[in-house]
Design a protein around this nucleic acid. Sequence first.
DNA 1: GCATGTGAATGGATTCACAGCT
DNA 2: AGCTGTGAATCCATTCACATGC
Lengths: 228, 228
Amino acid sequence: MSESHNRLSSDREVISELTTGRLSVYLRCLTYLESMGQKTISSHDLAKRFHLNSAQIRKDLACFGEFGTRGVGYNVSQLKEHLIRELGIDRTRNVIIVGAGNLGMALADYHGFNGNGFQVAALIDIDPNKVGRASRSGIPVLAYSEMRHVVRERQVEIAIIAVTADAAQDVYDSLAAAGVNAVLNFAPVQLRLQSTVKLKSVDLRINLESLSFYLKNAEDGVATPGDE
Amino acid sequence: MSESHNRLSSDREVISELTTGRLSVYLRCLTYLESMGQKTISSHDLAKRFHLNSAQIRKDLACFGEFGTRGVGYNVSQLKEHLIRELGIDRTRNVIIVGAGNLGMALADYHGFNGNGFQVAALIDIDPNKVGRASRSGIPVLAYSEMRHVVRERQVEIAIIAVTADAAQDVYDSLAAAGVNAVLNFAPVQLRLQSTVKLKSVDLRINLESLSFYLKNAEDGVATPGDE
DNA sequence: GCATGTGAATGGATTCACAGCT
DNA sequence: AGCTGTGAATCCATTCACATGC
């Protein structure tokens, strides 16, 4: 299939965050198409479903080798399986959530975080009143002092920070020390990075302010439609 | 101060989302600096606090006119007030949250969503069991059928979608019809856009998958550090 | 004929580097 | 001397357009 692409496993080019984000989107779409019984899809049809350009989709997919058939398109199930493997969710990764407040609790029970490659193993909190309880779906709240132990014991690979802004840096550093190397941060702070730990931040406040900025300009008659 | 910049209010150039996101970050930093009693800051010092380039900060700030003093830097309080006005959060905007599940409830009580320019007026849900209740901090859950009315009555400008993926498009369309023109979407779907409604999406699943992708490649020895 | 895969062209955003002000 | 404001240069991502293969 990829006769011309006999690349060794390590010479793959660097893939940008923007591209991987789109791969997730494609995967979701392919899962849907498969459930509808569709067998193949062209980059052009895929592009129509989002606001994307078909060339971009082909480029994104071509990063990993040649997967389409000229004149036909892509095999839905095959491409889906391939993306699952490329994204590394063909096995389950354990997750802990640090901070068992409203947000942490909600995230623990969030469907997208349980199943299909991820599993929330525990919540962690310093508050002794919260320790020993559990989320609605039964995920236990453990003491902060147990964090290191849980990470090792349960082989936790990803942590979610859902504590207040002032505690986030300490938590991040402790997670790094405990051996976690991927963190999703919800605290509204600029964290000082450790080289071993990949960080993604979701800043709710920034998103709201960005909408406010748009509204303000719309009032003033400045046009700026579009998404994300 | 801006003698050379006598632009009329409407000739302002288009400002990218990337820039506005950074403006929010600067604002947060300036608020902190002000609370520490610092009077002025240079673009260089500001840049050191994030992982940014000082030229970028100057460019970002220069969008709105000349605010710094050569040889000195920027006046902290003055620049802060200016950003607050530029971001349109010098007045309070009302917000509703559609979907009073775990996530919606958590967001309703989220500190960043209440105060400093925003105010959550209500939660909305179809489930009759939820209607009439309230979040921990007292934000009421209203019926879905009331949405249109609440939006008009309370002059709601921003809506947050915290419903399941399959309901999100209907909610979005209803919000548009009700007159909301800014939406923050948490449902994992690609929404079909309306021209009058600005959309920002926060897709938690995509963020996790992106971390998984990083972990998978780190296993294979591909280097890709960095944030966001 | 039709759709992929991809080099070349375009379009944006970031960074450099320096003129100009305090 | 020090720092802003900004054209020019660079870097990265997206889009075009077409050769290639089913």
